[in-house]
Structures are given as C-alpha cells and as structure tokens.
Design a binder for these strands. Structure first.
Lengths: 230, 230
DNA sequence: TACATTTGATATGTAGTACATAACTACATT
DNA sequence: AATGTAGTTATGTACTACATATCAAATGTA
C-alpha cells in the first residue's frame, strides 16, 4: 500500500488506508456502471463482503461520499446516487483559517478577474428592476461617514447584487464563498480607499453605457486593488 | 435531531446523523481554538469520550476531514491540522457525470468570463519565453486537417498555456478542473467551429497589442460560444 | 561518552458482533 | 377506502479486540 512517484525528486510516501481505497473503488464503480442520480447502490454489508473489508471501513468511505452529496442514504431503503452541490463542497475547505497566504492572494486575483469578465453576462441579462435595486444599494453609501464595518457590508451588498444579476446561480455562490477571503484581505486596509469610479458611476454605466464602458469602469473602480498586483 | 424550519411552507425534514454533528463540532473546535496547520488534536478516544459518542462515529467524521486535507493522521503520533488543497476538494465532485445540465451550463459561462478577465494578469506577467511557447502551440494547429480529438487537445493546450502564463497557480488548477466540463460541451458540436480570431492572432496581439485589444480578440475568438448564451 | 540496537508504550487502523432505529410492506380493522 | 398494526430490513450506533506503525526510553557496544 505504498506509493512512490518515480520522478526527479523523492516525493513523500503516502500511505493509503483501506477507507481511501474503498472510496476510490466506489467512485470507479459509479463511473463504470454509469450510475445516474436516483440509481441505487448495493447495501453496506454487500459492499464490505465484495471488497473483503469490514463494514466499518466501508462506512468511512461512504461517509465521505455522503458529505459531498454524491450519495444519499435512508434507513431500510438503502443508498442512492445524488447530484452534489459542487459549491457546497468547495465551501467546506474555503476558510481563510486554513489557507496559506499565497493561495489567498491567488483567490483574490481570481475574484478581480471575474469582476472584469462579469460585464458579458451583465449586459445580456440586466433588467430595469435589478438596476433600480442596485442603485438603491449604491445610494446607501455615504463616502464621508465611513464606518469601516458598514463600508464593507455595503461593498459586499453592491458587488453581490452584481453577481446575482448575472442570473448565474453557480457564479453567485462562488462569489459568496470568496467573500470571507475578500473581507479578510480588505480588513487589512487601514484607510478606506475609494476608487475613482464609484458604485453610482457603475450604475449609470449600466443604464446608458456599453459592455466595454462597464469593464473600463470596473477596472477604475478596482484600480487600487489591481495596482497592488505585480 | 429533527429540524423543522417554521416558515410559510412545510420544508423537508432533514435528519442529522451523529457523524454529521461530530463533523460540525470538530470544525467549531478548530475555529474556536484557532488552530493553525501543524497544531495537534486530541486523540480519537478522547474526542469520543468528550462528545459522548462511539469512536466509530468520531472516525467517520475524521475520515471526512482527512479526505479534504483539513487534518492529517499518523499512527502513534496522532492528528495534526493541515492546509487543504482547496482545488483538490473541488475536483472531488466536479465530474460531468454527477452534475445537472443547468449547473454545467453555468460552469461553462464561468469559464468564458474568466477567459475575458484573464487579460489583466496576462499583460502583467507575460514573458518572451512564454509567448514563444504559446506560438509554437498555436502553429501546430492546421485548420484544414481537422481531426476532432486533436483539435480539442490543441485547444486545451493553448488555453491551458494562457492560464499558466498568468502565474496564478490556483487559477490554473481551477481551469484544469473545468476542462472536463468544457470538453463535454464542446464534444457536442458536430462541426468544428473556428472563430474569426485564431490562436495565432491572439499570440500576435499578446506581442504587439494592448490589454483591451486582447480582450476584444478573445471575445471574437469565443464569439460562437458567447452567441449561444441568452 | 557517543552511537547503534532493542524493547515497550501508544494512537491510529481494521475486524467483528450486537442491538437500536427508521421506514417500507403487507395485512388487519373500522 | 382510510386508518392502524405488526413484521422485516438496511442503516446508525456502540463496544470489544487486536494489528500496525512509530516514538521514546532503556539497553548494549565501541
């Protein structure tokens, strides 16, 4: 059960436990049998017997798949394949607590990139109602009375609304998860930095401008973030 | 252990198993004690006793954290907190097999958006050597002899190189994971569609053009994908 | 003293048994 | 036909026992 990757360097020897192996075998099983959500799996005892391991080990592997939402279990009925919430599983590890500084910065960049590309979907799907709501959020922000915590909340509300306006639910949830990372890094700013282009300016562009205008506007709005990249 | 959300509608009753609860409690424990990678956890039997559950249940919960890379275990030494590979955990569920059509489309959109925003990092970090390599990849593609599988591979190589050139490792891996989804959707195309702007054109823009030129070029290159959105 | 070897202790890994519990099925009751 | 009851079954939980890797201290050797 040892695994030495024969490359240039000596890599870490990783020991696979039975639970690891069973997890892999179960994934292969799902793939090979091309099981779709709703299809049912053999019962725990059968799996254990087939693989020649204790039910205990099987349950540890199943517990993982269950957590990810790949399978669902019910007493007496047994187990069925399910469609996992892909963002939910992402969320399980995306905690600034665990993540090293480098990755945090990279995730931050990822967000900036998304924000620029957003214009595409935004101009495809924006509605009058959405723009009105966005404007309401933008107007709440008073540049002078800068309570730091409020500023961040408003920032989140505005950009969150933008993501929601794309009509892409997955994208919206992705941003939701990136928020803690974003918040963490912004909280390091001592002085609140206001971009040359305000939220209200962006709303105006959405009303009367073009996709390209919006991209440029967003770039200006996030200028102080981009300028920190190197 | 029942949970009835008292709202307007009757919502589904969700049953939390002990393993679910223990998983949550362990996450809280890590948070509250602000444990950092390297710090060690109590041993299984102690956790089981503290929480008043069997070691079995504790192991199922730990098995989940272990899979995500949040903790690592060694015999005799015990368990230590670890920094998870965030993309790795994503990978575990991002299989076109499990994902429903709607989410697949949303992920595809996500990729298109990234591709547009990419220009920011690209023009910040491109090097002569990278551009040379990119050009080599682009030249391999012969528009006439269009073996479908080769075309896809070349497509992946080119765009993969672009992501790699951003110097953002997380982004690169993110794209890697999106590839199966991308490949799946592109494979549905009967006739290979060539954009108005070719790979070689994009290379040329990288050499002599501006960020904005590149964004426009990429938009043209992916035009037939964008045109399908609504 | 310095180093190598052996031995024991310890926490995780695996196996197996037993029983609790939810939920389906079929049958009985009104 | 609707409701209630009993039996069956697969998962959920608990407990025990032992295997195994690994660290640390004790022992032996130069």
């Amino acid at each position: 059960m040892y695994n030495i990757r024969s490359g240039k360097e000596l890599e870490r020897i990783t020991h696979k436990t039975m639970a690891d192996i069973v997890e892999i075998r179960l994934r292969e099983y799902l793939k090979n049998k091309a099981l779709r959500p709703g299809d049912s799996l053999p019962k725990e005892t059968e799996i254990a017997e087939s693989l020649g391991v204790s039910r205990n080990v099987v349950r540890e592997a199943l517990s993982r798949l269950r957590m990810l939402g790949i399978i669902q279990t019910k007493k007496r009925t047994g187990m069925v394949v399910s469609s996992p919430d892909i963002m939910g599983s992402f969320e399980r590890v995306l905690d600034p607590m665990f993540i090293d500084e480098t990755t945090l910065r990279e995730i931050f960049e990822l967000r900036l990139i998304l924000e620029i590309g957003l214009a595409e979907l935004l101009f495809l799907r924006k509605t009058e109602a959405d723009i009105a709501e966005l404007e309401k959020i933008a107007k709440k922000q008073k540049p002078t009375t800068g309570q730091h915590s409020f500023r961040i909340k408003n920032e989140i509300d505005f950009h969150g609304k933008l993501y929601q306006m794309t009509g892409n639910h997955t994208l919206r949830r992705f941003q939701d998860m990136l928020l803690p990372v974003f918040g963490y890094l912004v909280s390091l700013e001592k002085v609140p930095i206001i971009g040359k282009v305000s939220h209200l300016d962006l709303v105006e562009i959405l009303k009367t401008g073009t996709k390209e205008d919006f991209r440029q506007g967003m770039l200006q709005h996030l200028e102080h973030h981009f300028s920190k990249l190197h």
